[in-house]
Amino acid sequence: MSKVVFSPARINIIAKNTFLEAVRQKFFGFLVIIALGIILSSQVFRDFNFGAPELKFIADFGFGAIVLFGSVLAIVATAQLFFSEIENKTAITILAKPIFRSEFIFGKFLGVSLLLLVFTGMMTVILSVLLFWRETAIMEGVDPEAFEAGRMVAYGDIFLYGIVQWLKFSILCGITMVVASFSNTNLYSVILSFVILLICHLQYLARDAWAQMEFLPVQLAVFMLSAVFPNFQLFNIGDQIALGESIPFELGARIIGYALIYIIVFNLLAVFSFRKREI
């Protein structure tokens, strides 16, 4: 009998199936509509005639909607698409086939990641269109002086923002897979993943403050904490962009590199943890 070898084609099949399943779920459409609603609701700012600063307000709302609903989607969709396979026993049928568990994990990850890319991409494009439309209107009408130096919105940076957030959501998907690979209920996976998300957002406190701790054991504990969890504050570049500060190339490259490393690490950890899971 010939050996079964690791197959990217199988990963691809799992990924596609995962993506299709996600898109056909009501939850995805629901999130898209809510996020869109929030982005479009920034139109209330028109009533106040703020002039050029209106663009900042629109960007704030758009970025906020992307971050909030992207994070929710990353966690809930991963738990739903990965953990539910175990819970609903659909995984039994798949894993009884000649397929490596790593292929299953990578396929699931890629499927969810593709879903997150579609979500982030859609939101970023809609936000850009909205900004462009309002910028043009304000430039030609209400507040032309503010645009002496040309257009104010850096569309390239908004695009970069979309990529960075997508990578962050993908890390979050990896984290949720690791959590789900050893947890026993869907709710537990979701809650624990949100707690970890929160810790990752606050990690920078530990990262910058451990040296100031006076009591050595506390110092060590805080240092450990800062090393174990990734620094999600690093992806928080939306405010800068909304304030009109551009992101230099090297900074962007470092953030992206950091994200890619963690995506790989969490995927491998998920494989490690799932490898011996009893189905």
Partner: peptide, 19 residues
């Protein structure tokens, strides 16, 4: 995660300082 956290500092550190 601890080892990785320390190993990525050279990538993350300068970016974080700048941000």
């Amino acid at each position: 995660l601890f080892v990785v956290g320390l190993a990525v500092r050279p990538v993350e550190g300068p970016a974080w300082d700048e941000l």
